[in-house]
Simulated scan of single mutants.
Amino acid sequence: MTGLADVQAVLFDLDGTLIDSAPDLGGAADEMRLRRGWASLPMDAYRPHAGSGARGMLRVAFDVTPEHADYEVLREEFYGAYEARLTRHTRPFDEVPALIDALERHGLAWGVVTNKAHRFADPLVAALPLLARAATVVCGDTTPHAKPHPEPLFEAARRLGLEPQRCIYVGDDERDMLAGRSAGMRTIAAGYGYLGPQATVEHWPADGHILSPLQLLKWLGLP
């Protein structure tokens, strides 16, 4: 699907789509292991699960799920460890700055819709100049609901003064596609992010799939 003349804005997920935060997310969980005298795990173990935040990192590092009795305590420890190293190694993915430049050059608004809480997203936006250019940033606690609920995407469209169908949503997780589809937006799966080996992208409700950020321009029919 190309030549989308009716698209006026592109909304992006954050982690795994615009920025590579896996080194700091995984690093925070690994620090917790080291504090306990446990062996460090390779970053390749953490990376496929970085899009799931604390839940994914704690599952890799400690094999615990939210149902585990110690999960809440471990999650708070993880939050503190992550907050202390939030931007140590986190950077935009290659090609993302060029993609944003191109979208702005063609007059398309762009914004961020993430499940990351304001506690973490606001310092990231402040630390990474590229993110400060976003027309809107909707976080996981901006509305009463997080993705895959469509309300964060509706909120982003409202802030941009656009009908949801005038926006597309780009993300690297099935919940991003579900949220976008429920909001009436066209959806693009970002295959360069944190899609793990078990991801079945072909079953996601996505309108397209890109393997690098700049491929989005081709999908939009832009030079």
Score class of each variant (00 low, 15 high):
residue 47 R to N: 03
residue 37 G to R: 10
residue 15 D to N: 09
residue 121 A to K: 07
residue 220 L to G: 04
residue 12 F to M: 12
residue 171 G to A: 01
residue 185 M to Y: 02
residue 101 D to M: 03
residue 126 A to N: 10
residue 174 E to I: 11
residue 3 G to K: 09
residue 32 M to L: 13
residue 28 A to N: 04
residue 121 A to I: 03
residue 160 L to E: 09
residue 158 R to H: 15
residue 142 T to I: 00
residue 154 F to C: 03
residue 99 L to R: 07
residue 217 L to H: 13
residue 223 P to T: 14
residue 217 L to R: 13
residue 51 G to V: 05
residue 7 V to D: 03
residue 61 A to D: 14
residue 216 L to D: 10
residue 30 D to I: 03
residue 160 L to N: 07
residue 131 L to W: 11
residue 161 G to I: 10
residue 18 L to F: 04
residue 40 S to L: 03
residue 166 R to C: 12
residue 75 R to D: 09
residue 71 Y to W: 12
residue 33 R to M: 08
residue 121 A to F: 10
residue 185 M to G: 10
residue 181 R to P: 15
residue 124 L to W: 01
residue 120 F to M: 06
residue 28 A to F: 09
residue 122 D to H: 12
residue 51 G to R: 07
residue 35 R to G: 06
residue 136 T to H: 11
residue 178 L to M: 11
residue 200 T to H: 15
residue 126 A to I: 02
residue 18 L to M: 13
residue 87 T to C: 14
residue 125 V to G: 08
residue 85 R to Q: 04
residue 210 I to D: 06
residue 124 L to H: 00
residue 90 T to F: 09
residue 195 L to T: 06
residue 66 P to D: 10
residue 168 I to M: 13
residue 214 L to T: 15
residue 15 D to Y: 01
residue 13 D to S: 09
residue 19 I to R: 01
residue 170 V to F: 02
residue 134 A to P: 13
residue 31 E to G: 13
residue 206 A to R: 13
residue 77 E to P: 00
residue 63 D to F: 00
residue 31 E to D: 14
residue 139 C to Y: 13
residue 162 L to S: 11
residue 89 H to G: 08
residue 112 V to L: 04
residue 134 A to N: 01
residue 165 Q to G: 14
residue 56 G to F: 01
residue 62 F to H: 03
residue 213 P to V: 13
residue 120 F to E: 06
residue 7 V to W: 08
residue 199 A to T: 03
residue 177 M to W: 05
residue 161 G to F: 11
residue 15 D to W: 06
residue 18 L to T: 00
residue 50 A to V: 06
residue 197 P to E: 15
residue 165 Q to A: 13
residue 169 Y to L: 10
residue 41 L to M: 12
residue 117 A to D: 08
residue 22 A to R: 05
residue 209 H to V: 10
residue 44 D to L: 08
residue 106 H to W: 12
residue 93 F to K: 05
residue 178 L to V: 15
residue 25 L to E: 04
residue 166 R to Q: 15
residue 27 G to R: 04
residue 144 P to T: 05
residue 127 A to W: 01
residue 138 V to S: 11
residue 196 G to D: 12
residue 69 A to E: 15
residue 93 F to L: 10
residue 156 A to K: 04
residue 188 I to Y: 01
residue 186 R to A: 10
residue 102 A to N: 07
residue 167 C to Y: 05
residue 96 V to F: 04
residue 39 A to T: 05
residue 13 D to T: 07
residue 47 R to F: 09
residue 70 D to N: 13
residue 104 E to I: 00
residue 175 R to G: 07
residue 112 V to F: 02
residue 111 G to L: 11
residue 219 W to V: 15
residue 46 Y to M: 06
residue 162 L to M: 02
residue 93 F to D: 13
residue 194 Y to L: 01
residue 61 A to S: 07
residue 203 H to Y: 08
residue 126 A to Y: 01
residue 120 F to I: 00
residue 85 R to G: 01
residue 212 S to P: 03
residue 43 M to P: 12
residue 218 K to D: 14
residue 160 L to D: 03
residue 192 Y to D: 08
residue 169 Y to A: 08
residue 200 T to I: 00
residue 38 W to F: 13
residue 220 L to A: 11
residue 18 L to S: 08
residue 67 E to I: 00
residue 208 G to N: 06
residue 207 D to F: 07
residue 160 L to Y: 12
residue 147 K to C: 06
residue 210 I to V: 15
residue 182 S to D: 14
residue 41 L to I: 12
residue 46 Y to W: 08
residue 136 T to G: 03
residue 66 P to T: 00
residue 213 P to W: 09
residue 110 W to P: 00
residue 13 D to V: 01
residue 23 P to Y: 03
residue 111 G to T: 10
residue 66 P to L: 09
